[in-house]
Design a protein around this nucleic acid. Structure first.
Length: 382
RNA sequence: GCGGCUAUGGUGUAAUGGUUAGCACAGGACUCUGUGGCAGUCCCAGUACGGGUUCGAAUCCCGUUAGCCGCC
């Protein structure tokens, strides 16, 4: 059945819209935050607990599952939903991002979204430059397995075949996520590759999974628009927006709008890898339907709780003296049953349950936050 | 009681008599956006105490105190 996307309401104040993303494994109310389950697990939680955080849909990763345990194992287990006992909607990222994060990201110590002021000023990645750890050519990416050093290759065909065997509801085209330091010529050339790969992905896919194309183009307006027109013109079921969004966060909204305005209105749009709480309203108002982000789960494992009072670092000793929930207004299981002093103790003692409790709360908090944004759209406030 | 050994940030340790006493952990602050439970940056904080030798002492000498070991 692939997917069916219904738009329930379009804001007249912004590009925001309310929708229902129907899949074989259930319906997602959009806009929606997508929790990250890279290795077929939301780290520290079992699937039943993830549901209790009000998570509607997860994203897992082709690159990671290909290396471990291998798509054969997942397929043999009855595909990913059965493998991890998650019976709701699920997507897999194509592995394209890992080309960046294991390549230039590793070389330069970069994040992918916003170029930080202090990072590698003056250095630019020019056309035909190759990262140290892997080789990117016209057909795909050659790299060494971090597990045993074997030479491995993933290109668009390989990525789609792997994703078909993994069996998520929504899969992504194999793209090259260009690094923030890449100059115009590098991005332009990379875009040709990403676009060629997009067509190969469409042609390769035999399953009835939904396939999203990915728009790249970095911070360059004409390339973003060119990419959105090209990818938007292909027969994808939805669209991912990837890569970098400028030197300044304020520009991110504009850049998303350049892209959104070129994409077919009736198909869902997924923003890849963005989503601090402070970004959510901005990206939703720019026309994004779903977005994934590691922040709530990743930060939880470093001791950070997201609350209505801001981010709290629960490893700080002062919390040993706070016999109160993480967030006064939160009704999640963690806030109803545990206090800051105990969670602080667990984290300081290195007990895994500390990370688990924060992961649960953070996901619940993020999902509630987006739920409130959906309500604002319903009420016509944004 | 006698003899020997030891004494460096909160903890564990480093420093041929010669720059500003180094490192790790702990503590504090920060960074992290298609996930490395990782990593990084910065801060706080010390030569047990009292004398002496020396241009110069964590380092050598004497005493005090404390701890450990052995002997009676």
């Amino acid at each position: 059945m692939s997917i069916n996307f219904k738009i329930l309401k379009k804001s007249n104040k912004s590009r925001a819209r309310l929708g229902l993303l129907e899949t074989e494994h259930g319906v997602v109310e959009t806009p929606c935050f997508v929790a990250v389950a890279t290795q077929a697990v939301v780290k520290t939680l079992e699937s039943k607990e993830v549901e209790e955080t009000k998570s509607q849909i997860l994203i897992s990763n082709t690159y990671h599952l290909h290396l471990k345990p291998g798509e054969k194992i997942v397929e043999k287990a009855g595909k990913i939903h059965k493998f991890m006992n998650w019976n709701r909607p699920l997507m897999t990222d194509s592995g394209g991002y890992q080309v960046f994060s294991l390549g230039f990201g590793m070389d330069y110590g970069l994040g992918s979204k916003i170029l930080k002021e202090n990072s590698a000023k003056g250095e630019a990645i020019r056309e035909n430059t190759q990262p140290q750890q892997l080789k990117i050519n016209d057909d795909g990416v050659t790299f060494r397995s971090p597990l045993n050093g074997d030479e491995l290759f993933i290109g668009p065909k390989e990525s789609i075949r792997i994703q078909e065997r993994i069996g998520a509801d929504i899969i992504f085209a194999f793209d090259e996520c260009t690094p923030p330091l890449a100059d115009y010529d590098y991005v332009k050339k990379s875009l040709e590759k990403t676009h060629r790969w997009a067509k190969i992905c469409l042609k390769t896919k035999k399953s009835d999974q939904a396939l999203y194309g990915i728009v790249q183009g970095s911070k360059f307006k004409d390339l973003r628009i060119e990419s959105a027109k090209f990818i938007g013109g292909l027969d994808f079921d939805g669209f991912g927006i990837g890569g970098e969004f400028g030197d300044d966060k304020k520009e991110m909204g504009k850049m998303i709008e350049w892209v959104v305005d070129e994409l077919p209105e009736k198909k869902p749009r997924h923003l890849l890898g963005v989503g601090y709480l402070e970004d959510m309203e901005l990206v939703i108002k720019s026309g994004v339907d779903t977005f994934d982000c590691t922040v709530p789960t990743h930060y939880a494992r470093r001791g950070i709780a997201f609350t209505s009072e801001g981010e709290l670092n629960l490893k700080q000793t002062k919390f040993l003296n706070k016999n109160e929930p993480l967030d006064k207004g939160c009704v999640c299981n963690v806030c109803l049953n545990y206090k800051k002093d105990y969670i602080c103790h667990l984290l300081k003692a290195g007990e895994i349950t500390g990370m688990k409790l924060l992961t649960f709360h953070n996901l619940h908090y993020f999902n509630t936050f987006v739920e409130e944004i959906r309500n604002k759209i319903k009420r016509g406030e944004i």
